[in-house]
């Protein structure tokens, strides 16, 4: 299952809720969700811990738009929109954590 998160982890509990509920699989961070995968942010440790259980992806155009394209936490998998489509296609279902 693909879980899509689009909220900053610093203002919303959405990523937390996703991480504590989802059983595993792929997580894709888009829009303001991309702040979670930047080095030095307050939830970096939590994100790194989650990477043991999930494959964590980030939509690079959203990260680059926010001026943080060079701060990607190591091990997070960068994708473009074609990669996003591929993730949606390869998982049986996808849930947007709105």
């Amino acid at each position: 299952m693909l879980h899509i998160v689009n909220k900053s982890p610093l203002t919303s509990n959405t990523l937390d809720s996703c991480l504590s509920t989802a059983t595993g699989g792929d997580i894709l961070l888009i829009e303001d969700g991309v702040y979670a995968v930047t080095r030095g942010n307050a939830v970096e440790a939590k994100l790194r811990a989650a990477m043991g259980q999930f494959r964590v992806h980030v939509l690079m155009p959203d990260l680059e738009a926010r001026g943080l394209g060079d701060r990607l936490v190591e091990g997070v998998l960068p994708v473009d929109y074609a990669g996003f489509v591929e993730l949606a296609a390869s998982n049986k279902t996808c849930q947007s954590w709105l």
Binding site: P61, D62, V85
Partner: peptide, 19 residues
């Protein structure tokens, strides 16, 4: 909100990739 932009870019990429 960025939602409509994201949806559009996803849709375009899906079509371009043969879906």
């Amino acid at each position: 909100h960025q939602a409509s932009d994201s949806a559009y870019l996803f849709t375009k990429a899906a079509i371009e990739n043969g879906h």
